[in-house]
Structure formats: structure tokens, C-alpha cells
Amino acid sequence: MGSLTPGFHGRPRPQGVALPPGQYVTEDFPVLSAGPTPRVDTATWQLDVVTETGATHSWSWADLMRLDQEEPTVDLHCVTRWSKFGTSWRGVSLDTLLADVASAADFALVGAYGGYTTNLPLADLLGGKAWIVHTYDGAPLHPVHGGPARLLVPHLYLWKSAKWVRSIRLMVQDSPGFWEQLGYHDYGDPWREQRYQGD
């Protein structure tokens, strides 16, 4: 491999930071979406959790705001190779949201305004690992970054953190979401560089 890209030296390596393989650090907040940015009014915003039996639990914006709020500071890793350290958010833990939902499901399919979907094991939404966030860096989350509210699952590649979150369908069997049907990895662990199917 010594002969690959001769003369390439790259930037000074980041020191003392935990960067997953193939990622680089950015100070910006780049945007990745498959289509136009939906504009969703908090007056009509709604989040539905639908269990495998069809039971539906719904939250309005006011309902969401009444729940316990947390302020996670997390690192983000996007499959397009940028990582952003120390981003601060405010929102509701999925542990809080799903606490009273009765389910035997192992998987979740998250849906968004605009039609986007992504799937992940339910275990990755629970245990203090995932939030519905509405505030970024002290300000209401901008629509290009998923406002008014997005899912935040920072231990997986960012496409799992569905912007403009609208629904969470709990399922007994896994079912691929939007990028997952298009060849991206079913799980998407940045530390194991699970970018595409087969990784």
C-alpha cells in the first residue's frame, strides 16, 4: 500500500480525539438530505409511536415540551465522512418517551415528515442512547438540520438520526428504511465503519 497516492501527506492529524475510521473533523454543520427540506409548523406537529399490535401513542408539541428535558452533548459522525465534536442539544430521552408503551418489539422504523424512513434495533433507542431533540446550541433547531424536532442517535451514523421525525413504528421484525434499501448498512456503527451493505 506504500505506493498508493504518492505525495499525499494530508493535514496535521487530530491529536487526542476519538475519530472513527475514515472520518475527518469539521467545525461546520454540513447538511445531508435526499430531497427538499420540509417546513413543519409546531402548531400541527405530532409524533406517533405505533406498536406491533397497532396501538398508537401520540404527542403534540406541547406534550413533548411537558416531558422531562435532557441536554446531551455528543459527537456526530456522518457517513459522508465528517465528524463534529461536542454538539449540544436539548430534548426528550426515548427512555422517557417510550416508558409507558407496552411492546415486545425488537426493531423500530422511524418515519419523518417528507417521507424519509430509517430502521434501527429498539435497543439502540433505549438506555440513554437516543433523544427527540428540538434545540441545538441553545436555539430552536433549524429546518435544514431537522427542525422542529429530529431523532438523535449519536452512536450510529447520522442518517439514523431522522430529521423532521414524525413516527416510530415498533416491529417484531426488521424492515429496511430509505438509505438502508439503497445499499447503506442496516446498522451503521461508525466505529466499525459500517457504511454500506457488506461492511
Partner: peptide, 26 residues
């Protein structure tokens, strides 16, 4: 970091690792 190398230094005959094609939506 990368575009300047590819635009200025990467020479005919040099090798590079490639993966793809990627993307089925756009």
C-alpha cells in the same frame, strides 16, 4: 486536504483506492 492533492499533485500513473459505485437515489 483532498481536492488540492487531486487537482495539483496526483499524476498520471499514480494509484488510488476507489470504492463504488455508491448511491441509488440520485
Amino acid at each position: 486536504e483532498v481536492s488540492t492533492y487531486l487537482a495539483d499533485a496526483f499524476a498520471v500513473g499514480d494509484t488510488i483506492e476507489v470504492r463504488g459505485p455508491v448511491g441509488g437515489w440520485f
